[in-house]
Amino acid sequence: MSHKENAKTSKIVIFASGSGTNAENIIKFFQKSRNAEVTAVLSNRRSAGALKRAHDLNVKALLFDKDALYNSHDVLNILKDMDPDLIVLAGFLWLFPTNIIKAFPNKIINIHPALLPKYGGKGMYGSKVHESVIDAKEKESGITIHYVNEKYDEGQTIFQATTPVNENDTAETLAEKIHELEYRHFPEVIQQLLEKNN
């Protein structure tokens, strides 16, 4: 049996700027799977908890700066060497560069903590999103998983899940509901995309 006929293990690379709870959840989900694995977590912040979580779970953790992402092509070259089947943005706050998007067409996805196209765009992340949803007296919020294009939060939607917004919800309580949706659905959607592409 040739090597190509063996079931290929899909490779996932995660980009994260923050505490990394979604990254950790995805890593752990795929550590139980034989078909895919997270091979690296990349971050633009030295203090990002995502790097420590990756390191603690024996996943390669890499730090990069703006120049490496936008000017020198260092991040692009690292990704080409890694040859991921899917690049996952899990709380990554910089706009993804066009050269990487072109090099990995339909292989870069993001999660947003609201029901796009509402409450998306530059500067809309974390508690800012939840505060805006509550201020607008929305009856529901949720998550959107979408492909990444050259504009913040405007790529094609892959999946949405909703949660009710109650009158007594605060940005903090709404964030907890959104996190639950993220942890439940994000790894499963990643798995479905990988299965579809293989």
Rank of each mutant, 00 (worst) to 15 (best):
A90M: 10
W94D: 10
Y119K: 02
G142R: 07
A68I: 00
D74S: 10
W94G: 00
K196D: 12
E154W: 11
M1Y: 05
V59T: 14
D83W: 00
A161I: 06
T21D: 06
D83N: 13
F159M: 10
G142S: 08
S33N: 11
F96S: 09
R53F: 03
P97Q: 04
N6S: 12
E188K: 15
H55P: 00
V189H: 11
F15P: 01
A61S: 15
D135V: 00
I101Y: 06
E37T: 09
A171E: 13
R45K: 15
N99Q: 14
K118C: 09
T162W: 01
L57S: 05
Q160R: 11
E180Y: 10
I111F: 09
E131I: 01
N106G: 14
D169I: 13
K177S: 15
Q156M: 12
L51N: 06
I143Q: 05
T163A: 14
V129R: 03
I111M: 12
K11P: 02
Y70K: 02
K102P: 00
L174K: 08
I145G: 09
P105A: 12
A48P: 05
R46N: 14
F64C: 05
A103I: 00
G123T: 04
D83S: 13
S43M: 10
S10T: 05
L51W: 10
E37F: 00
T162F: 03
D65C: 09
K8G: 01
F96C: 08
N25G: 04
K102T: 12
E37N: 05
G155K: 10
K80Q: 07
E138P: 02
D56F: 01
